[in-house]
Design a protein around this nucleic acid. Structure first.
Lengths: 324, 324
DNA sequence: TAGATATGCCAACTATAAAAGACGTAGCGA
DNA sequence: TCGCTACGTCTTTTATAGTTGGCATATCTA
């Protein structure tokens, strides 16, 4: 790999001049500039970003810590985050914590060692202490913690709309399949909204919880099968995620339940899969692209030393398709 | 952020001593070691990986260049690649090229500037020249190029099995929905196998091609609708990807075609979605996990200066589910 | 002739690593 | 007993690739 010295030698100037050309600083004649550019091209020179980062104390790296990219929601989110980061000249260091809090801790330390300029965290197991002694800019996605700013969709409203839709469409016995409720996350507002609406409307209702580590479709299916075993006459399900909702469709087929006649389903997220399954999923659309954009915006503003709002709630939309 | 100097000062030794403790090199008395560790702990010190990388000429970073993580196949692949990389102490810099060759070029330059130790490329638009002047270790996934080692599933055999299954199950008029055939990729062997088997067995057959940039479900559906408009009596489809196959299911429902009675479908990949849709997809399973493992293995061996085999074909499996 | 423009030179700086050297002590042979 | 080597521990110096600032030295222009 050629260094700035090789370029200087080839162009017949000093490293100072090359550095000036690279950074557009000081006075440079067009002739010299051209010579330097030509030398760089000939040598196929790429400035060593490590050395620059070291000096500037800025790496243009953002750490993205999520449970798992293989989950469509995080995959889509990651894609948009990468998109916006790239537009601003930042790069993404990808970390899958696998919902394992020790791996999460290790990853945060690793990201610090690599001098990332900020961390976007969409992972859920971490305890208080580990966040707090990180002085880096952080943005959480769908997660509360102390004074760390977070981005989330309007989960409570989403839960209201979903539950109301089921009742309005005539469901008499409804269930909610929630994420892990032990964690204090914004997503739990979906659960709260479900409870609130069902109680208020006087509709019989149940809640089942998915486990912390289950991203496996077979596990989701098992949960749904167990639910129907206990309550075969459930006629409406609000699932806290489209993947779970799709699993409900799959199990409903096994049990010969007609959708939406015998069973109505509302998901959450509106990932691409929601429009791919048959029947297509009615779901609460999270603005994934906007969540990504907001997260990047909040990180960059913190990197620039700005204070940012702690709460960043983005609007949801109820998308009615064929399962209701 | 505390530096090694701060630790040295706190422990009452020189930076060299701290460095020795950190790197387990040379002679260190237990007393000194303990003092240093205590100082590191007190200061919550994390060695600056940028400075280490600069000196060592090794970053422990691997660039991953793919069309888009939001596609489930790449999402699952990325997840495994990250998993194996992490096990070996490497980190992943994620780049979505969006199938745009200029962005691809920019990304490769960026990765070089960041001194990545190697690049895994699953992207498809890049031209010859741009690869060649990269002296970095590279591994391609599902892509041929000159003397760059690649990993791919046994596409030809997969195509054979898929096509034979359709014919064996009684299909009389079959179609293949391929990826973009302009690119010279291993995936085109699915197309070749389809042609070969259909011709050999004397079965009427058609091929439609998806466009380069279409990862959009609506685009897939449109392609399928057009196919059925032209050939309403097609009774078997081999789709070159599960997402396309799922789109076929969706369109078949629109057209009131019964699966598998009126229409049989075989996909390719066996992403999680294949088992989620209803009816569940018969598909050719690519060993995504093994592809990831192999790609990391090949990159690491190249980083260590080893020569590696150019061709790395991994076995596929036909998974029969409900669409055949 | 002053000021702007253009370039060079040198040193300091970023955080860490590693080779070489310094220092005191111990062991051993002549 | 002197001189040599070995040893363990720590320091000094140099290196990594690039940035920056001060200062010197030109040349050009108003």
């Amino acid at each position: 790999m050629p260094t700035i010295k090789d370029v200087a030698k080839k162009a017949g100037v000093t490293v100072t001049t090359v550095s000036r050309v690279l950074n557009n600083r000081g006075y440079i004649s067009e002739v010299t500039r051209k010579k330097v550019y030509e030398a760089m091209k000939e040598l196929n020179y790429q400035p060593n970003e490590l050395a620059r980062s070291l000096y500037r104390k800025k790496s243009y790296l953002i750490g993205l810590l999520i449970p798992n990219v293989s989950h469509p929601f995080f995959a889509e989110l990651t894609s948009f985050i990468e998109y916006y980061a790239y537009q601003e000249g930042y790069k993404i260091l990808l970390c899958n914590s696998g919902q394992d809090s020790s791996k999460e801790k290790e990853y945060i330390d690793m990201l610090k060692r690599h001098q990332v300029d900020g961390i976007i965290i969409g992972s859920h197991t971490l305890e208080a202490e580990q966040y707090l002694n990180v002085k880096l800019p952080i943005v959480a996605i769908d997660r509360y913690y102390s004074n760390i700013p977070y981005v989330a969709s309007d989960n409570y409203k989403g839960g209201i709309l979903a539950t109301k839709l089921l009742i309005q469409k005539g469901c008499k016995k409804i269930a909610h399949i929630s994420g892990p409720l032990i964690l204090n996350t914004p997503a739990n507002n979906r659960y709260k909204a479900f409870k609130d609406v069902a109680t208020q409307e006087g509709v019989e209702h149940y809640v089942v919880e998915t486990k912390l580590n289950s991203f496996e479709i077979e596990e989701f299916k098992k949960i749904v099968r167990d639910l129907f075993k206990e309550h075969p006459d459930i006629d409406g399900i609000f699932a806290s995620g489209d993947l779970i909702a799709a699993s409900v469709i799959s199990v409903a087929k096994e049990l010969n339940k007609k959708i939406p006649q015998d069973l109505k389903i509302v998901g959450y997220d509106d990932i691409n899969v929601a429009n791919l399954v048959v029947p297509s999923l009615t779901t609460v659309r999270q603005p994934i692209k906007e969540i990504a954009r907001k997260a990047i915006e909040l990180i960059l503003r913190q990197i620039d030393g700005e204070k940012v709002e702690k709460e960043n709630i983005l609007p949801i939309t109820l998308i009615e398709r064929e399962t209701t």
